[in-house]
Every structure is written in structure tokens, then in C-alpha cells.
Simulated scan of single mutants.
Amino acid sequence: MGSHGVVLFAHGARDPRWAEPFERLRARLLELRGEAAGPVSLAFLELMTPGLPEAVAAQVAAGAAVVSVVPVFFGQGGHVRRDLPVILDQCRSANPSVEIRCSTAVGEDAEVIEAIAIYCLRQALV
């Protein structure tokens, strides 16, 4: 039985520094899960690499039997509603023996909204 990989899927940008918070998120998630649970990687929609198909393929090559894609977007905009399903279909077609799951965008989660609201409140009180 293979491992369960996680791909954090973000938009991408021309400035490589834009990816730094996502790299920290990846490192923290890997720390929380432990390396034995499976790989945690980043993928980008555009302007940065790897793309989602390449990230999924790398996890499959490393032995992942399940890959969960987590869109690190604040909301369910056009990229998440239109572009992501097409890319997920490509990934599933290219890896038919692997279960590829996808969560909702992180910004749609009540706990994420709460954490951001608390952060904003702390910033307003400083």
C-alpha cells in the first residue's frame, strides 16, 4: 500500500519571493504529518513550477497511492471553479490507479476565517 501525498496548490507569481509563505506552509505541514505519512509538495497554476500534473506525477513516482490536492486560495474564484477541475481530470487520466482527492479552497474553511479574523484583530490592537 502506498503513502498519502498532499499537494498544496497555489496561483503562482513572477516574483519567486511570493512562494515563501507557501514553502513555510509546506514545511510546517510536513512537520505535523511526519515524513512517513507521505510527501507534501507545492504546485502552481501558472508562472511558477511545478504545475499540478508534474507535482502529482512526482508523488505517484514516489509511491503515493492517494494524493490530496489542497487549493491554497482564499475563495472559490474562477481558477478554483473552472481551471482546477480540468487540471484534476488531466491528473486522474494520467494516473488512473491513484486516488486523487481535492478539498475546497482553504479560505472557505471557518477555522481559517477565524484565524485570519483573530490575526486582523491583533494587528488593529497593536
Rank of each mutant, 00 (worst) to 15 (best):
M1I: 10
S3H: 05
H4T: 13
G5P: 13
L8H: 13
F9N: 01
H11D: 14
H11V: 02
H11A: 06
A13K: 02
R14I: 06
D15E: 13
R17P: 05
W18T: 07
E20M: 05
P21W: 10
F22N: 03
F22T: 04
E23F: 04
E23M: 01
R24T: 03
L25D: 06
R28Q: 14
R28T: 11
R28A: 14
L29M: 02
L30A: 15
E35H: 12
A36Y: 04
A36E: 15
P39D: 02
V40T: 00
S41I: 07
S41W: 10
S41Q: 04
L42I: 09
A43W: 09
L47M: 06
M48G: 12
P50G: 07
G51V: 00
L52C: 01
L52A: 03
E54G: 10
E54P: 02
V56A: 11
V56C: 11
A61Y: 05
G63R: 13
G63Q: 04
A65T: 13
V67P: 08
V69K: 03
V70C: 01
V72F: 07
F74K: 04
F74E: 08
G75C: 09
G75D: 11
G78Y: 15
V80H: 08
R82S: 12
L84G: 05
I87E: 07
I87A: 07
I87G: 02
L88W: 08
S93C: 03
A94L: 14
P96G: 03
S97T: 15
V98T: 15
E99Y: 11
I100P: 15
S103F: 08
E108N: 09
E114N: 14
A115H: 14
A117C: 13
I118Y: 10
Y119D: 11
Y119S: 05
L121A: 13
L121D: 15
L125P: 06
